[in-house]
Design a protein around this nucleic acid. Structure first.
Lengths: 231, 231
DNA sequence: GCACTAGTTTGACTTAAGTCAAGGACAGAC
DNA sequence: GTCTGTCCTTGACTTAAGTCAAACTAGTGC
């Protein structure tokens, strides 16, 4: 595998120069994991961070009675586990693979050496962590201040936006995992989708493909200006 | 006001040397604000970040119908607004003063110049943002996976822990604001406190002073291993 | 000390969403 | 094509917690 090429293609490191990519590739270790394989838990010491080269990883927490809350879904080219690199201690959550995945692992000590020597790399990492914080602030808002239909609407709009405001949203994760991401259970998600179909806001073209019938009404739903009909 | 002295006393910058404190003091601007004064909104461009020298600030989001979710309560010596410095765009939330406050403001452009020149400063900021991320991951977990009594129990245990596991917790914010922090409403908070008093888990010594009667049962409540009696 | 305002508590009632169970649909392996 | 296991849907029911309103308490300013 051409580690340097993959590193250069990530959003995180793409603005760095060839020499920097070379240095990063030197310390990066390729790791493969199978679907459902645990990558780290919150009992594990934070020995480094990862970038997904192929596949998909979720970062999540588990409650004592086994319920899961997904914090992030990490797609190709994206980093995860950075927090443990820059603050002593364990990883703050669990990470496992939603699909068979190939990862690059950056050992903490060696990576920190690079960061200390290279201010453009440290600026990249500061921007990365700040972006993560923005996401989490929004997630806290949604979990506290929005009901589940509004959360789903927000998610669908965001997926559409990442696809040039396309009418078709292809779910990149299963509905059960989507429920875990939205802070609800699969039963509730299923019911809400049915109500959105009944209200002509969305339609299902295939199992995991949703057509948005009205961006405007979906937007109103996301911002609390519309409620779903009861069934 | 001796800016350099205050900067040196903050957890964020305390490990830096005298010269660094000098540089930071040169760019820092003192700002005063009154209780309830808005410091920034999420429509404001992120021109810099702040440190609380005295007083108390909350970072929060508001829903369309006016409900508030507090993201962080910022006490003396603590920074806020850092996210906007390292990622382009607006501040990610609102900030206002819970008490009359004195702040130091660090303009974004001048601060970034310092960070780029000084790897120990960039490492400090990376650690700061990572600590913030840890807090937010826990908050997401609590809002999704814990009921309100467990959230309150968790909060009280944390306050106690920060006071050497004292039996007495003095609430540093009003109960209404505590409800906003815990993602609930004052009515619910009041009812749950009453049930905890009835179950002999806590007692009120004064309006804002809580005596923890059983750390163990409070801990069990926090981790879902105990439920409150109904009233 | 008094009046006013803000914060808190309490009651009655409603609702969003969870629990539990079972059936249906889909995907993968042989 | 068939079988098995997993994912998803649906129904019945329950519950945590929210809404609305009013009363009570605490804090502040004069």
């Amino acid at each position: 595998m051409d580690k340097k090429k993959h590193i250069a293609e990530t959003a995180l490191f793409s603005g760095l120069n060839d020499q920097q990519h070379e240095e990063l590739a030197k310390i990066a270790i390729e790791k493969k994991c199978r679907k459902k394989q645990m990558i780290f838990t919150n009992d594990d010491e934070g020995l480094g961070f990862y970038i997904v080269i192929s596949g998909q990883v979720r970062i999540f927490r588990i409650s004592p009675d086994g319920k899961e809350q997904i914090i992030h879904v990490i797609g190709e080219g994206e980093p995860f586990g950075e927090v443990a690199v820059f603050s002593n201690g364990n990883y703050p959550a669990y990470a496992d693979a939603l699909r068979d995945s190939i990862l690059l692992f950056f050992p903490r000590d060696r990576f920190i050496e690079l960061v200390k020597m290279d201010s453009s790399l440290s600026m990249k990492m500061l921007a990365d962590l700040s972006g993560r914080l923005r996401e989490l602030v929004s997630k806290v808002e949604e979990l506290s201040l929005k009901d589940v239909p509004a959360r789903l609407a927000t998610y669908l709009l965001l997926q559409s936006e990442q696809n040039d405001n396309s009418d078709i949203v292809h779910l990149e994760i299963s509905k059960s995992q989507l429920a875990n991401l939205l802070g609800t259970i699969p039963e509730t998600l299923s019911r809400i989708m049915r109500r959105m179909v009944s209200d002509d806001i969305i339609a299902f073209t295939k199992a995991r493909s949703i057509r948005i019938l009205s961006h405007e009404r979906l937007n109103d739903l996301a911002f609390g200006e519309l409620r779903l009909s009861r069934m």
